[in-house]
Nucleic acid binder design. Structure first.
Lengths: 230, 230
DNA sequence: CGGTCAGTTGACTCTATTCAATAGAAGTGG
DNA sequence: CCACTTCTATTGAATAGAGTCAACTGACCG
């Protein structure tokens, strides 16, 4: 009646780490003639969870965080977006999260309808958007491991390692968001973030030239901590 | 130089809960003539994280979980799929997670190329897949709040409440996966899951006719626990 | 009926949180 | 440019919530 799964052996099965296959996604192409640039200040809300999703946004410069709030104020930062990223993760009628500027930023605002039109008229765009959304979903799954199964030290190491990967060289200085953004992204408190960073510094894994930047002194040591080298 | 954000007041700003806007997504339509059915036993692996992504699967009957493993065996269940769901969350060359049957199930296997062909030839399919992927991403963000910011009791309540929502009536009996699947989905241990379920039972919120089913006796009480009514 | 596996319960431990005090940055205005 | 305020980050001590380890119970299966 039914076939059985061909036992093509799990040839490799590289458990762990694997932030994601490298495969870089081409930058999303959008027509130049639509949208308008909007300047937003640090911590300014771009849109609120639950509001009508009338516009979508692309980060031109700076950075944007998306977050969810609980009734009593607990906050979870779901993702960060930087220059080039399109904040369309959800095509529903209402925004499913709040978007805020991490630093003074410029975003390009597109009407919902212009994006929807592109989606039907431009195959290229539509495929790219799917690829990008899949990519975001993969990284969301990755983040679930961090939130659900990692210790504080492993979370911080994972976070720093991920930021370092975006640099051409892993030991280049990294810009950090505020301690509370880091904490709310990693499911920790600011105190714990502070303590773990201090510890990593003491161990000679990182340096903290100032509170908003890190340099990874020992990338190999950092990578060991990502999955726990207690 | 730049426009400012129109201060269309955050009219509502319904903080918290909001699993997701209701907006039901139409079931994904796929041609009948492609793919082949495959029977898989409970706990059988359908594909491994890291293997070449040669096929995609749709759940015909039963249930499938996708999970990620850490090197030392820690496991995070990222999502569950049930009848009708397509397990294509990621169009990369390699699977980014392991898929396993939760119970004896039937899945329909599609070659990667047949899905890719549909993606270019069938606008309808491609839009639907985007919508579904966005939906999954929304629920991933929702899960991040659970994993990053909720207590054990809140996690269990959130989980049960979500399952109850899928039923036509919230007090209908619910099928549960194993304690360890629940634990690995919620970032807890089996012991904690067991203890919290026992507590909810003692409080008269739920009943446990047997280990693999729950009935929600008091849905309102359960909903209060979702965001913490300590 | 015995054996295995899943789930439950208890006692203890430990990690991260909480609360509190201090130190340091950054911004404001004279 | 410096005093003053405010906000952010750090550090310490005590606490609590979930984890660990271990023993026990009950289902299921040959």
């Amino acid at each position: 009646m039914f076939a059985t799964l061909a036992n093509r052996g799990p040839s490799s099965r590289p458990v762990g780490n694997s932030a994601a296959a490298p495969e870089p996604v081409a930058a999303l192409r959008l027509p130049e003639n639509i949208g308008r640039n909007v300047a937003v200040e640090r911590d300014e809300v771009i849109f609120w969870e639950g509001d009508q999703a009338t516009s979508y946004y692309r980060v031109v410069s700076g950075a944007v965080r998306i977050c969810k709030l609980m009734a009593d104020g607990r906050r979870q930062v779901a993702d960060f977006f930087t220059a080039g990223d399109l904040v369309v993760l959800d095509l529903a009628q209402l925004y499913s999260f709040t978007a805020e500027a991490v630093v003074d930023s410029v975003v390009r605002e597109y009407s919902r309808s212009s994006i929807m039109n592109l989606l039907t008229s431009d195959q290229q765009f539509s495929r790219q958007l799917l690829a990008i959304t899949c990519r975001r979903l993969m990284s969301a799954h990755h983040q679930m491991v961090t939130l659900g199964r990692k210790t504080a030290e492993e979370r911080i190491a994972t976070f720093l390692s991920g930021l370092a990967d975006r640099k051409p060289k892993r030991t280049l200085p990294i810009e950090l968001p505020s301690r509370s953004d880091i904490a709310d992204y990693l499911g920790l408190t600011v105190e714990t973030v502070s303590r773990v960073l201090a510890k990593l510094k003491r161990q000679g894994v990182i340096e903290l030239p100032n509170t908003h930047s890190v340099t990874v002194v020992d990338p190999d040591a950092l990578d060991l901590l990502v999955e726990g080298a207690a």
